[in-house]
Amino acid sequence: MLGENHSLFIEYPELSDRIKELKTSDEHFKRMADRYHHLDHKIRGLEGSNIPTDDHHFTQLKLERLQLKDKIFSILSN
């Protein structure tokens, strides 16, 4: 769905306390979460506006977000 918010707190509401904890105690996790947030914000901005972007660039952004989400979930589930 275009423009849908995929923030970590929306994607993993049951893990929100763990997300907050790791963002304050684990610098590597914080950098990944911040990058994920930046990508999600950028993707939603592109979806919701008329800013031209080529399909390859857009696909790469979405792929990076997905890969980060997988890595973040792996950390959260340990």
Rank of each mutant, 00 (worst) to 15 (best):
H57L: 13
K30N: 03
R65V: 01
S16M: 08
L46C: 03
R44G: 07
S77E: 13
K71T: 08
P13R: 12
G3S: 05
A33Q: 04
L8T: 01
Y12K: 11
Y36W: 04
K69T: 09
I51M: 11
K71S: 11
E11G: 04
R44E: 05
N50T: 14
D26C: 13
I75D: 02
G45F: 11
T53M: 10
M32Y: 02
K23C: 13
H56F: 07
E4H: 03
L68Q: 03
S77M: 13
S25L: 15
E14S: 14
S16L: 03
E47F: 04
I19P: 00
H37E: 15
Y36T: 01
Y36F: 12
R31S: 02
E14P: 02
L46E: 06
E14V: 05
G45N: 15
L63S: 15
S74T: 15
D34R: 02
K42Q: 10
L76V: 06
H6R: 15
F58Q: 01
T59L: 03
D17K: 10
L68C: 07
L66W: 07
I43W: 00
P13Q: 06
H57E: 10
D40Y: 02
I10M: 09
D40R: 07
F73I: 11
I43K: 03
D54S: 07
L8A: 05
S7R: 11
H28T: 10
D17A: 12
K20F: 10
L39I: 06
E21H: 12
R31F: 06
E27Y: 12
T53F: 13
D26I: 12
K23P: 00
D55Q: 14
M1Q: 08
F73T: 10
F73N: 14
K69L: 09
T53G: 06
Q67S: 14
L66I: 03
S49A: 09
M32L: 14
D17T: 11
H6E: 12
F73Q: 13
P52F: 04
L39R: 03
I43G: 00
Y12G: 07
D70A: 13
R35E: 03
G3A: 04
F9D: 15
A33P: 01
R65D: 00
H6C: 08
F9Q: 13
F58P: 06
H41W: 09
S16C: 10
L68N: 04
R31N: 10
R65F: 01
